[in-house]
Nucleic acid binder design. Structure first.
Lengths: 189, 189, 189, 189
DNA sequence: TATGAATGAGGTTTCATTCAT
DNA sequence: GATGAATGAAACCTCATTCAT
């Protein structure tokens, strides 16, 4: 039941946003009552927090795996992470959109908790870029912090428009974006 | 008065989001009354629509100017647009954040109207990339559509984290990102 | 309208208590809507606070008048205050009962504010008794603090059972109680 | 278990009042579940009734003992009862406060039952005073009914402010109040 | 003896909107 | 131009109670 509520709410939060989705809407979708909702969740915000926590901790876990792969170059790791983000749209697109858009409806305290994890995720990107630059694999003059933000923006924006069942599939898009990040778009000879 | 209401509402919408900001909040901020609000706006949504229309039409106007500059290469035009987006944070950051986040609170009909303009803006990016690829300035194997989305994501994400008064100024960030887009991050010799 | 709401709520709070009276009950009684209620009061608690403030400040004002009467002995002042409390039942009985019973439903902060006034009222009793003892009018061995509490308990309890329209009228009861306090119940010769 | 529930509920009812205390609050305090509560009590009101019944019947039992003491004068009996009430604060203060304050949350039928006992208790006071007056121990012109109410108010009000562990102990306060009732506060020579 | 899941009625509060002035 | 009073729908949430286990 709890799981059913979470799934239904992700669907609705994605479509209408957190504050435009009422608890009534959620329980209507699964044929339950408001009483039941509040049996499982202390508040609507707590449900949102649960969604956030699950989303970001899952992402961090998978990022960890990539980071610890000793065989890969920095570029390969970066590509793997971009692939991870984009491939994830298929399964977790709705969660992700809720994550990006509705964080502000958490309480101050919860925002801090989530932001910490989100920052960790980003700093891991930054770290890889820094290492790649130090090792000579990447250009020495790039700013790892700005580059990390840029890559994340590029990859994450796909959640807003990319259709995993469309003409281009997620794996292909991941390759396209990895090349773009690593090589740029200017032609060479 | 109308202008005062718009400015106050942008501030509040940015901070709390459209649906968490009440008409009361808005008029309180400027010392007016709800009656006055409804004298100037048919509805809360209409105010949001006004904000959206103004934001996107301003952006399109300025993009036009860049597009029509016959002296610039595709790369220069692209850089100019990235610069335009990022430099704009200083003045229009709040409007932009409202634009990105709260479009969903417009009515279906209004969403269509705004989306049309937003698409036009993106397709202009796509067009430049296509022309650059055709002319040999850019790589032939890039997909202009995906690349355009990527560049927009990269540039627009800065609205969420970039502090124009911080260590790096907008013009510098624009250069950093233009180089990144055009040249990639991989080192060459 | 605001006054109507206050009067209706005093009636209902007295009968059913604060937490068993709903805002709906109140507005039903005067043919208004809940919206109207919240136009005039920030919350149900604030209405309760208004009632408390009005009740105690009125009482203090009238106590002041008695205190400042230079012609009266301590015993006369005490009697006058007992009379004031009991005669007040007729007009302010319901308010008083709400005041005594439902103070606990105020917020901590508001409880402190009201308690301050209530204490002042009591300390004024204490002060008169102390002066009467010092001047030799009252026995030297009485404790003004305990005596003040006792007199207040005795007088205020009448709010719970005394019917101003019954066999004994308020002025008579006030005399009965004044004599009892001053002279005791034991017979003398 | 039943006893544990009763004790926990008295604590909570005293602090927050009957209607502001939820069954959940009660079972939380003792680490039980709502199911358990309803195994032992038909309803929340029934628990309140149990508390009331126990409190008043205990008081009546002890009053009886005093009444039946043939050796005591009316004044001594009155003093003994005042002492009983005040000394009781130490052990039964919380129950007493619940008794005075929350009777109104019983059903009409239960209110009648409890009121009967409470009246009996009061009438026993009245009876002693009447006898004392008839025997010439007390003044002939006092009204036993009004005097009984007054004494009860005076004594019971101490439940609202008296700290049994404070500067004055209960036995001392009982003496102070007995003297006050019997002798009054006016000085004699 | 005890529990955990579920409910439904009703509670307080918010709020966009209307309208007479 | 501007306002203040009023509304009604709907929001979040609480809670006494039931019941299968």
């Amino acid at each position: 039941m709890k799981e059913k509520i979470i799934r239904a709410s992700i669907t609705l939060f994605e479509q209408r946003g957190f504050s435009s989705t009422s608890v009534q809407d959620i329980v209507d979708l699964i044929g339950a009552t408001k009483g039941t909702f509040y049996y499982y969740f202390k508040s609507k915000e707590q449900l949102l927090m649960d969604i956030h926590r699950e989303y970001i901790s899952d992402l961090l876990r998978r990022q960890e795996v990539i980071l610890e792969n000793g065989d890969w170059s920095s570029g390969q790791k970066l590509s793997a992470m971009v692939d991870m983000l984009i491939s994830d749209i298929r399964k977790n697109g709705p969660s992700a959109r809720v994550f990006f858009r509705d964080i502000r409806h958490l309480s101050e305290k919860n925002i801090r908790i989530i932001t910490e994890d989100r920052d960790r995720f980003r700093l891991n990107f930054e770290e890889i870029i820094r290492k790649g630059a130090e090792s000579g694999e990447f250009r020495k003059d790039i700013r790892p912090d700005m580059a990390a933000f840029g890559i994340l923006g590029l990859a994450n924006f796909s959640y807003n428009w990319f259709d995993p069942e469309g003409e281009v599939n997620p794996e292909e898009l991941a390759v396209i974006y990895s090349v773009m990040i690593l090589e740029g778009i200017v032609a060479r000879n």
